[in-house]
């Protein structure tokens, strides 16, 4: 599904990721760990085409990232749900509009969209916050809205960059549970986190694998924690 072949990434002359070779299979659950500044976010950004490797190659859905146009990448992202630590919403739109945004962007709003939105809001437990604006939400609510937005297009891959960074343990467990549910539905999940207890919790429910990034390289690729 996502294939790294000796991929390296440098920015203004300094190498952030070096010689990464990796194959992320469909339906897998991967944790991406490593100390702050180790390159977790850079690695994830390469996974959804935000950054292209300077050397080597990255293939997403069997397409070489280096050969893709901006619009090819945009189309590809419709099959990848991304959740950031800071969520990134349009603050002037309410949460329903924010969640529905990927449908609008891909011109897939149809008569069933409203039902789909209601189901998603119920799934993330935000039925009572339909008209809320993003700045009014708590950290946990924001992450759940981001998750709903990430999955509304029924993507094949979910990429979450430290989604539990700003929430309490209870909310972290709740978010993890939702991601595990998605994985059990066949979605590939890539979750960046440095919270080992969260990783241990996940491993008791799914076959989660850990990719540890350190010194610009994937150190324990594919190894269980």
């Amino acid at each position: 599904m996502i294939k790294f072949d000796s991929a390296s990434y440098s920015y203004t002359g300094s190498e952030l990721l070096s010689d990464i070779t990796l194959d992320i299979a469909s339906g897998a659950f991967h944790f991406v760990t490593g100390p702050s500044g180790s390159g977790k976010t850079t690695f994830l950004k390469m996974c959804y085409g935000e950054l292209r490797p300077n050397t080597g190659a990255v293939q997403i859905f069997d397409q070489d990232l280096g050969q893709m146009t901006r619009d090819d990448i945009a189309s590809m992202r419709r099959k990848i749900g991304v959740i950031h630590q800071d969520c990134q919403f349009l603050d002037h739109l309410n949460i329903v509009d924010n969640i529905a945004l990927p449908l609008s962007v891909s011109q897939q709003i149809n008569p069933n969209s409203e039902t789909q939105l209601k189901e998603l809001l119920a799934w993330v437990g935000l039925t009572n916050r339909v008209n809320a604006m993003p700045p009014e939400l708590s950290g946990g609510e924001r992450q759940r809205v981001a998750l709903a937005r990430a999955v509304i297009m029924s993507p094949d891959i979910i990429i979450a960059d430290e989604p539990t960074g700003n929430v309490d343990w209870e909310m972290s467990q709740r978010l993890l549970k939702l991601l595990i549910e998605l994985n059990k539905m066949g979605k590939t999940v890539l979750l960046a986190s440095h919270d080992l207890s969260l990783i241990r919790l996940a491993k008791s429910h799914v076959q989660a694998r850990v990719l540890r990034i350190s010194d610009k390289r994937i150190r324990i690729a594919g190894a269980d924690l």
Partner: peptide, 11 residues
């Protein structure tokens, strides 16, 4: 950035 992230084409 948000629009690009969710798959919006430049157009």
């Amino acid at each position: 950035a948000v629009l690009r992230m969710i798959g919006a084409h430049d157009s």
